[in-house]
């Protein structure tokens, strides 16, 4: 009876009839975005960060010097001739070797930000899948997967870096690999915890009762619901990665000259703090501003995505 009723109605009329007074709903993402936009600190941070990224992308084009180019004229007395000045073309001054600090800050920033983003992206992808599968399946698999996480987490970070550097030589990709290896561990734990609480919710049970496959439940129901927390976590992790890369470079385990990063610049700037403050000031200013921006954005995301706000 009922099916006959369904079929006798024409598809087209049914669709067109309802299209007349369509009401577009506001998804939780859209609602969160609206809340985020109201957060002044976070929005300012977005603009500042956008500006920094634009600088990093296009800045080196404005410089008269390449980042690895030595200005021989300055090299005679870098602490006097290498002061920041518009006239000489060294807007941020030069370092001890007469290399233009403006170009170096911009080029170095690319690497720093890239490391931060790469770390976050790798962390989100691997961490989400690992954590949600572990939490959803539970039992022995969960035990095994979490023990793997703990084992990886217990290997000292620095030890791995030094080991890799000794084995494979000093290579920028090593930083990416090492960060990739450790960055997802925290997220995997967080996601597993959230999945545990989600998987007993009624809508997951409803999906089971409909007959949705486990894999689809993870992809369609679990991951979209943990993504909010994950985004907050990831955005707060980005500064950590940038700091980590700076730290490695500071120790001389990271980027090698003539390539550079903010950590390298700060490291060398710190040595000439008393005679050439600009060598420390400009890279630090960029680093600190970027870190602040990410933290504010993370805070803003947390407030915006907090489900209790609903």
């Amino acid at each position: 009876m009922f099916s006959a009723k369904l079929n006798e109605k024409n598809l087209a009329t049914a669709v067109s009839q309802s299209l007349e007074d369509e009401v577009q709903g506001r998804s939780l993402w859209q609602a969160a975005w609206l809340r985020f936009k109201k957060n002044r600190a976070a929005m300012t941070s977005v603009y500042v960060l956008g500006f920094i990224v634009l600088c990093l992308v296009f800045g080196p084009m404005l410089s008269q010097f390449g980042h690895d180019e030595i200005d021989w004229a300055v090299l005679m007395d870098p602490y006097e001739l290498g002061r920041p000045s518009i006239a000489s073309g060294h807007y941020f001054g030069t370092d001890d070797l007469g290399q233009d600090l403006f170009a170096r800050t911009m080029v170095g920033g690319r690497l720093s930000i890239l490391v931060g983003f790469m770390g976050a992206v790798v962390a989100v992808i691997i961490g989400c899948l690992w954590g949600s599968i572990s939490g959803f399946v539970g039992g022995t698999l969960d035990n095994v997967m979490m023990r793997i996480v703990e084992v990886l987490d217990s290997i000292p970070f620095m030890f791995m870096v030094i080991l890799f550097v000794t084995l494979f030589g000093n290579n920028i990709y090593l930083i990416f690999i090492v960060i990739g290896m450790v960055s997802w561990l925290g997220i995997a734990r967080v996601v597993r915890g959230v999945t545990f609480s989600l998987k007993n919710r009624e809508f997951i049970e409803a999906a089971h009762s409909i007959g949705v496959s486990h894999w689809k439940i993870v992809l369609r129901h679990i991951i979209p619901n943990v993504l909010g927390i994950v985004m907050v976590y990831a955005s707060l992790m980005v500064p950590g990665f940038i700091m980590f890369e700076s730290f490695l470079s500071f120790l001389g385990l990271g980027v090698q000259p003539p390539d550079t990063s903010w950590g390298v610049l700060i490291s060398s700037g710190a040595k000439t703090l008393d005679v050439a403050i600009w060598q420390l000031a400009f890279p630090s200013l960029f680093l600190v501003t970027t870190l602040f921006c990410f933290n504010f954005i993370g805070d803003g995301l947390r407030d915006a995505l907090d489900p209790k706000d609903r």
């Binding site: 009624e202 809508f203 619901n225």
Partner: peptide, 13 residues
């Protein structure tokens, strides 16, 4: 299900 709001995925229309 018992709880009408909880049995729908909040991220789906």
């Amino acid at each position: 299900f018992q709880d009408p709001a909880a049995c729908l995925n909040p991220r789906m229309t």
